[in-house]
Computed example of a mutant assay.
Amino acid sequence: MDLTTHYLGLTLRNPLVASASPLSVSLDRIVALANAGVGAIVLYSLFEEEVHREELRDAAIVETHENAFGEAMTYFPTTARPGGPEPSAVSRYLKLIERASATVTVPVIGSLNGSTEGGWTRLARSMQDAGAAAIELNIYFVPGDPHTPGRVVEDRHVEILREVKEHVTIPVAVKLSPHFSSPGEMALRLDQAGADGLVLFNRFLHPDVDPERLSVEPGVVLSRPEDARLPRSWIAILHGHVTGSLAATTGVERGEDVAAYLLAGADVVMTASALLRHGVEHAGRILTGLETWMSRKGFESVDDVRGRLAVPRDTDATAYERAGYVAALERGRETYSSLGIR
């Protein structure tokens, strides 16, 4: 059985990808993920805020001594030096890429997380130089100002992508959220702007209100299989309409979840929550489940599965989705009317 797939122009041994999470913060964990069988690994994200904070710190150190005599360079604090005892978040990240790409045989993908245009995007080149096979660009932008027009949000995504593409030659995927007025049009804009792939969808980690503590608390909730319906719907719509790869993420617990995404049209399927919940060895169980399903259904390769249940290209996708919505309501009415609910 052939599980080989292609993502961002890379050949992967299977379509299961470990998405960015705490599971990839060290070389030992990355090796464990590779040994568990995943086809590629996205490293934990390097955040724009970390980069800016360290740039400001180093600038403050230099400015403190800039008017001193020439020998001042010999007593600059070692934290400002790449080889100092406390390496920066950036240098640690680049070193991890270098070591991981030299150790594991699966592609190692760097992850940049930010929300504004600026110099932090140049780090993509450093990731490339360190050995990253590709870059995943996680544009996590929640416009808190209610006066921000939707087009401004969309344009920022495109400009950040273009800035990153200017600095690298390796593939770049964009991880985007579903919270656009027209996610399909946003996907097409990013595709046309040069994205080599799209990851659907980012999950915003919304804070919540604790009525007992009278406080706002941060919230991290692992995804469940039922969360996969939204990204799966959009992958089914976009399949065949974009030139870049389509990666699915959210709600991947079993081999059947991977199969459902592939049937919708995904090139790869990413998971983090299931591995955090069950351990990295669960990747092997997911892949075994996928192979069992493929054998039972008579599929010999991932290519045979991909896109079989995508929205046909000659179909009015809007009417198609509307019909699905109406059918779901009718099914719900049939299911719950027997309980006496009106």
Results as ranks from 00 to 15, higher is better:
V269A: 06
E300Q: 14
R232A: 14
A272Q: 06
I30L: 10
D304C: 09
S24V: 09
S111L: 07
V152D: 11
V172A: 01
G289L: 08
R122T: 15
P312A: 13
I135K: 00
L275T: 09
V280I: 11
A228Y: 04
V142Q: 01
I235C: 08
G340K: 10
S233L: 15
E63L: 13
R232S: 11
E163A: 09
E159R: 15
R156F: 02
K175M: 11
N113P: 07
T250E: 12
G340A: 10
A130T: 07
A317Y: 15
T243Y: 00
I139S: 01
D2L: 11
V158G: 04
P146T: 10
L200Q: 01
A36K: 03
E330S: 11
G255P: 07
A310T: 14
F76I: 14
V220S: 08
A34C: 08
D28S: 15
A328P: 02
L12D: 07
G265I: 12
V31T: 07
N67I: 12
L112S: 06
R333Y: 11
P211Q: 09
S21M: 08
S26N: 10
F299R: 03
P77H: 09
L188C: 05
P149D: 12
D2E: 14
H278Q: 11
G307F: 04
V17K: 06
P87C: 07
A132S: 10
F204S: 08
F201G: 05
D58H: 12
D58W: 05
I286R: 02
G324V: 05
L10K: 04
R125D: 07
L3P: 08
H239S: 14
A72C: 12
D58N: 15
P22L: 07
N14I: 12
D129E: 14
D196G: 15
I237P: 00
V51K: 00
P107W: 04
D316H: 03
D58P: 00
A130Y: 01
L276A: 02
H167V: 13
Y325D: 09
T335L: 11
L46W: 01
G340L: 12
V252D: 02
P218K: 09
A36F: 06
A134W: 00
T249R: 04
N138D: 13
H241P: 00
V51S: 04
Y320N: 07
E159Y: 02
A60Y: 06
E50C: 04
V51I: 15
N14E: 11
V242I: 15
N138S: 11
V42G: 05
P22C: 10
L123Y: 13
T243P: 00
R333M: 12
A68N: 12
L198H: 03
E185Q: 13
V242M: 04
P207S: 10
D129I: 11
I61T: 13
E330F: 03
P183W: 02
T11M: 12
D304A: 15
E48A: 05
I286N: 04
T318Y: 10
